[in-house]
Computed example of a mutant assay.
Amino acid sequence: MIDSPLRVVLAEDSVILRDGLVELLTARGCTVVATCGTAPELLAAVGETRPDVAVVDIRMPPTHTDEGIRAAVELRSTVPEVGILVFSQYVETVWAARLLAGGAAGVGYLLKERVARTSEFVEALRRVAAGGTALDPEVVTRLMGGGRRSRVDALTPREREVLELMAQGHSNRAIAGRLVVSERAVEKHVAAVFTKFDLAADGGDNRRVKAVLTYLAESGS
Rank of each mutant, 00 (worst) to 15 (best):
L43N: 10
L43Y: 14
L43C: 10
A44S: 12
A45K: 11
A45I: 11
V46I: 09
G47W: 08
E48I: 03
E48T: 05
E48S: 14
T49W: 09
R50M: 08
R50F: 06
P51R: 07
V53N: 04
V53Q: 05
V53F: 06
A54S: 13
V55R: 07
V55G: 14
V55I: 15
V56H: 09
V56Y: 04
V56K: 02
V56N: 01
D57S: 02
M60I: 11
P61S: 07
P62C: 09
H64W: 06
T65M: 12
T65Q: 10
D66A: 05
D66C: 01
E67G: 00
G68Q: 02
G68D: 12
G68M: 01
I69K: 05
I69Q: 01
I69S: 02
A71E: 07
A71I: 05
A71M: 05
A72N: 03
A72D: 03
A72I: 13
A72L: 09
V73Q: 11
V73H: 11
E74A: 08
E74M: 02
E74N: 13
L75C: 15
L75N: 12
L75H: 07
R76G: 15
R76L: 06
S77A: 13
T78Y: 14
V79W: 11
P80A: 10
E81C: 12
V82F: 00
V82T: 03
G83N: 04
G83E: 02
G83M: 00
L85F: 12
L85S: 05
V86S: 02
V86T: 02
F87A: 09
F87C: 11
F87N: 07
F87P: 00
S88D: 07
S88I: 01
E92C: 03
T93S: 14
V94A: 05
W95Y: 15
W95R: 07
W95M: 11
W95D: 10
W95H: 08
A96D: 04
A96E: 02
A96M: 06
R98V: 01
